[in-house]
Computed example of a mutant assay.
Amino acid sequence: MTTLLHIDSSARSGGSDEHRFGSHSRRLTRRFVNNWQTVRPGDRVIYRDVGANPPKSVTGEWIHAAFTKPEERENWMHEVLAESDALVDELLEADIIVAGVPMYNFGPPAQFKAYIDNIVRVGRTFGFDRGRAGAPYWPMVPAGKTLVLLSSRGDYGYDPGERLEAQNHVEPGVRTPFAYIGISNVHSLAIEFDEFADERLQESIGSAEQGVDVLVRKLTASLSEGQAA
């Protein structure tokens, strides 16, 4: 059985296929998960809506607790880290992470940045030893996980080699910390032209949805081939 971790981070409720002002990224993540469950109905899905219920931001107490050895933590430290522990546990359980991350002012929503800050945890998702030969940091998340990053943008031309590539801090801002903890297999798709709201938006939606369908077929087929082997 494969476990999917489905994360939404848009401040908009519902998908853009449900109502006019709905979220494009929620539309794509739901399509991905629904298609996946059609092919593999026995797989498990964990759902986390950080858009509607943002994780608490990192505080000085959080940092103090996280960098204290587990066996030396006081009760209040365990309480401060409880939400982070739950988020890390979900991540570690998942084989596929399906994250809806729209572009807000050229980067991820604050809600998703708070999520990242909670899962990048010394001793849990990355290791550190200042005396270690070579790099003092190393990833601790088990290999083999895949991140599917589904985004949306008001403007267009943010992909590699296009006019606004340098202003896109969504995919790089998500890929970098996920790779740091050991998740470097990433697939990404995005809807563009949202602010134009014309036929180009509809074409972009259709293209992204088709891309989601193709990606689900590709990933589920690779799992089936691996099981058959």
Rank of each mutant, 00 (worst) to 15 (best):
T2E: 04
T3K: 11
T3W: 11
L4F: 09
L5R: 07
H6V: 02
D8C: 10
D8T: 15
D8A: 09
R12D: 06
E18H: 04
E18R: 04
R20I: 10
T29S: 08
T29I: 06
R30P: 03
R31L: 12
R31N: 07
R31D: 05
P41Q: 06
G42V: 13
D43C: 13
R44T: 14
V45G: 06
I46L: 15
Y47C: 10
Y47A: 11
D49H: 13
V50L: 10
S57A: 15
E61W: 14
W62L: 10
W62H: 13
W62T: 14
I63L: 11
I63C: 06
A65V: 03
K69T: 11
E72M: 09
E74L: 13
W76N: 02
W76I: 12
M77K: 09
E79S: 12
V80L: 06
V80P: 08
L81P: 00
A82Y: 08
A82H: 11
A86Q: 03
E90Q: 03
L92K: 03
E93R: 14
I97W: 01
A99Y: 01
P102T: 02
N105S: 05
F106W: 12
G107P: 06
G107V: 14
Q111D: 01
F112S: 01
F112Q: 01
A114N: 07
A114K: 05
Y115W: 15
G123P: 15
R124C: 05
G127K: 00
F128G: 00
R130D: 04
R132M: 06
G134W: 09
A135K: 10
P136C: 06
Y137D: 02
Y137V: 04
W138D: 01
P142Q: 02
P142D: 03
P142V: 04
G144H: 13
G144K: 13
K145E: 08
K145C: 12
T146E: 05
L147F: 10
L147K: 10
V148F: 08
L149F: 12
S152F: 12
R153E: 10
G154I: 15
Y156S: 15
G157P: 10
G157M: 07
D159Y: 14
E162N: 07
H169D: 02
H169V: 05
E171S: 08
P172C: 05
R175Y: 09
F178R: 04
I181H: 00
L189S: 04
A190P: 01
I191T: 01
E195T: 14
D198N: 13
L201M: 11
E203C: 07
S204V: 11
I205R: 04
I205C: 04
G211A: 09
D213C: 07
V214K: 06
V214G: 02
V216D: 01
V216M: 05
V216A: 03
L219C: 08
A221S: 13
L223S: 09
G226R: 15
G226E: 14
